[in-house]
């Protein structure tokens, strides 16, 4: 490369000058906020119908759930409480049921002639 004169220096610098990266997208809104300007908000008038629709929808959904619960057929189920009780029994519990050879102190007293 061979350049001569002031114009060439200027031209070279201009053609190759450092280029700043683009500004962040939200730079202006951040600045506005810092300077105390209000950022645009959706008005209360436009928001009200959405709240109303939302509320009505929630109430309707609750009523539908209650109604469907009331309409569901009730079927008699067999009493399975015994099965539950048996399934919960442990081997230690079985000792109380099976016949025992433990005759106890009273029987031994009889044998001894007391």
């Amino acid at each position: 490369m061979n350049w001569t004169g002031d114009d060439n220096l200027k031209k070279f610098l201009q053609e190759n000058q450092p280029q700043a990266p683009a500004a962040p997208r939200d730079e202006l809104s951040v600045l506005m906020k810092r300077l105390g300007y209000e950022t645009p908000k959706s008005s209360r008038v436009t928001r009200t119908p959405w709240f109303a629709f939302g509320g009505i929808g929630a109430v309707a959904a609750s009523l539908a759930v209650v109604w469907m619960t009331g309409q569901a057929p009730v079927t008699e189920s067999p009493d399975r409480s015994d099965e539950w009780a048996l399934s919960l029994m442990t081997t230690e519990d079985e000792d109380d049921i099976l016949p025992t050879t433990d005759v106890g102190e009273d029987y031994l007293g009889l044998i001894a002639g007391r």
Partner: peptide, 21 residues
């Protein structure tokens, strides 16, 4: 806010460029 927005739009590239360089 509108005036400041205009000012920013017109000059942000200049400000950014000078400071960066």
């Amino acid at each position: 806010a509108e005036e400041f927005g205009q000012l920013y739009s017109l000059h942000q590239a200049l400000v950014r460029s000078v400071i960066y360089q």
